[in-house]
Measured scan of single mutants.
Amino acid sequence: RKEMTAACTPRRRIINLTSVLSLQEEINEQGHEVLREMLHNHSFVGCVNPQWALAQHQTKLYLLNTTKLSEELFYQILIYDFANFGVLRLSEPAPLFDLAMLALDSPESGWTEEDGPKEGLAEYIVEFLKKKAEMLADYFSLEIDEEGNLIGLPLLIDNYVPPLEGLPIFILRLATEVNWDEEKECFESLSKECAMFYSIRKQYISEESTLSGQQSEVPGSIPNSWKWTVEHIVYKALRSHILPPKHFTEDGNILQLANLPDLYKVFERC
């Protein structure tokens, strides 16, 4: 597991931080080997919608929660590849102030007048994250320049770009939802926020969305749709870069829909 690298990086740093090793061990302890084997050997059937997909393993048909699986995938990559990410360069710098204002204007932020003026909160978020810029760049390849612009994001899987519609809320939550006081809790909560931002979430995906850094293989055609990215990038990574937690067998994120021999018997009677 320590050699797990989802995106190509030129050289690998050895990380011996106790906090990170502890988080890696927790993933191992909570892992479910049968689910790992199923995901490793599954045959992708198709997307139901951005949140759900169908896959077959041996004779069984499964309904998989793409949102939760991708979130767990990105969390584990962030923990196992800690401080070893490439950088996704933004085509132009994104001012943190503008991103924070967009987030505060969104109902998702939960902002009320009692929280104070949005401009003041946005300025605080910019200054707060600028103070964390060195650590964010060093460990997470999340790059913020001296003017308070976001200029780079971590490359977690080759050819995958997170849904940038979720970027404003991500920046807001970096400042408000991460435990910045304790090292282990900081790395864990920061990785979880980043994983949620990178995950496939239906509120940020339309039929026209593209999450891939590449064009489709047909010359002159439109960019790959999110469905292509889910199948050929995300579920491909799920084959080798995730140890599913045991609770996925109990919380409805992986559901067995049918045993195909039983279905064949039904059709034979028709």
Rank of each mutant, 00 (worst) to 15 (best):
E3G: 11
E3Q: 06
E3R: 04
T5M: 04
A6D: 05
A6E: 06
A7G: 09
C8R: 09
C8K: 11
T9G: 06
T9M: 14
T9I: 13
P10D: 09
R11E: 10
R11P: 08
R12H: 15
I14Y: 07
I15W: 04
I15Y: 05
N16E: 11
N16I: 08
L17G: 04
T18S: 10
T18Y: 07
S19L: 03
S19C: 05
L21P: 00
L21E: 07
L23P: 00
L23G: 02
L23A: 04
L23T: 02
Q24N: 04
Q24E: 05
E25Y: 09
E25S: 09
E26S: 09
E26G: 09
Q30D: 08
G31T: 07
G31N: 08
G31I: 04
H32N: 12
V34L: 10
V34T: 13
V34R: 07
L35I: 08
M38G: 03
M38W: 03
M38Q: 04
L39K: 00
H40A: 09
F44P: 02
F44Q: 01
F44V: 03
V45P: 00
V45T: 04
G46S: 15
G46R: 15
C47L: 09
V48C: 15
N49T: 13
Q51T: 10
A53N: 00
A53W: 00
L54I: 15
L54H: 01
A55M: 07
Q56S: 13
H57G: 05
Q58E: 14
Q58R: 06
Q58N: 07
Q58K: 12
Q58D: 12
Q58Y: 07
Q58G: 09
T59F: 10
T59M: 14
K60N: 10
Y62G: 01
Y62T: 00
L64A: 04
N65P: 01
N65C: 05
T66Q: 02
T66E: 01
K68E: 09
K68S: 09
L69N: 03
E72M: 06
E72R: 05
Y75A: 03
Q76A: 00
I79L: 12
Y80P: 00
Y80F: 13
F82H: 03
A83K: 03
F85Y: 05
F85K: 01
F85A: 04
F85I: 05
F85E: 03
G86P: 07
V87E: 15
L88Y: 10
L90R: 02
L90V: 05
S91Y: 14
P95T: 07
P95V: 09
P95K: 11
L96K: 02
F97I: 10
M101Y: 15
L102E: 14
D105M: 09
S106P: 04
P107F: 09
E108N: 09
E113V: 11
E113Y: 13
E113F: 09
E114C: 08
D115H: 08
G116A: 08
G116M: 09
K118H: 07
K118I: 06
K118S: 07
E119D: 10
E119C: 09
L121C: 08
E123T: 14
E123S: 08
I125Q: 04
I125S: 07
E127I: 11
E127S: 09
F128H: 14
F128N: 06
K130V: 10
K131T: 09
K132L: 01
E134S: 05
E134K: 10
E134Q: 07
M135K: 04
M135L: 06
L136H: 00
L136Q: 02
L136I: 05
L136T: 03
D138H: 04
D138V: 05
D138C: 04
D138M: 06
D138N: 05
Y139K: 04
Y139S: 03
Y139F: 08
F140T: 03
F140D: 01
F140L: 05
F140P: 00
F140S: 03
F140N: 01
S141E: 05
S141Y: 03
L142I: 15
E143I: 11
E143L: 10
E146M: 09
E146S: 12
E147M: 07
E147F: 13
G148F: 04
G148W: 04
L150D: 01
I151G: 07
L153W: 01
P154Y: 01
P154L: 01
L155W: 08
L155Q: 12
L156D: 02
L156P: 00
I157W: 03
D158E: 15
D158Q: 14
Y160A: 00
V161S: 15
P162W: 01
P163T: 05
P163C: 10
P163Q: 08
E165K: 12
G166T: 02
L167R: 00
P168K: 04
I169Q: 14
I169C: 10
I169G: 12
I169F: 11
I169M: 13
I169L: 13
F170I: 00
F170N: 00
I171R: 02
L172Y: 13
R173Q: 04
L174H: 00
L174A: 04
A175V: 14
T176C: 09
T176A: 10
T176K: 12
T176S: 11
T176W: 14
N179C: 12
N179E: 13
D181L: 12
E182I: 14
E183C: 03
E183Q: 05
K184S: 08
E185W: 06
C186F: 05
C186Q: 04
F187W: 06
S189R: 08
L190N: 02
L190M: 08
S191N: 01
K192S: 06
E193R: 03
C194Q: 03
C194K: 02
F197L: 11
F197C: 02
Y198T: 00
S199E: 00
I200L: 08
Q203T: 15
Q203L: 08
Y204D: 03
I205W: 04
S206R: 14
S206H: 09
L211I: 11
L211G: 13
S212I: 15
S212W: 13
G213T: 12
G213A: 14
Q214M: 11
Q214S: 10
Q215C: 11
S216D: 15
S216Y: 10
E217D: 13
E217R: 09
E217K: 11
G220A: 15
G220I: 11
I222A: 14
I222D: 14
P223C: 11
N224S: 14
N224E: 15
S225P: 14
S225M: 07
S225N: 14
T229M: 11
H232G: 03
I233C: 14
Y235W: 03
K236F: 05
K236P: 10
A237F: 06
A237M: 12
L238G: 01
R239K: 09
S240H: 14
S240L: 14
S240D: 14
S240Y: 09
S240N: 11
H241R: 08
H241Y: 13
H241F: 13
I242Q: 02
P244R: 02
K246S: 15
H247W: 10
H247F: 06
F248K: 01
F248I: 05
F248R: 00
F248A: 03
T249F: 10
T249W: 08
E250N: 08
E250I: 09
G252M: 06
N253W: 15
L255G: 04
L255N: 11
Q256E: 12
Q256P: 11
N259L: 10
P261Q: 14
D262K: 08
K265E: 14
V266Y: 10
V266F: 09
E268D: 08
R269C: 06
C270E: 14
C270D: 15
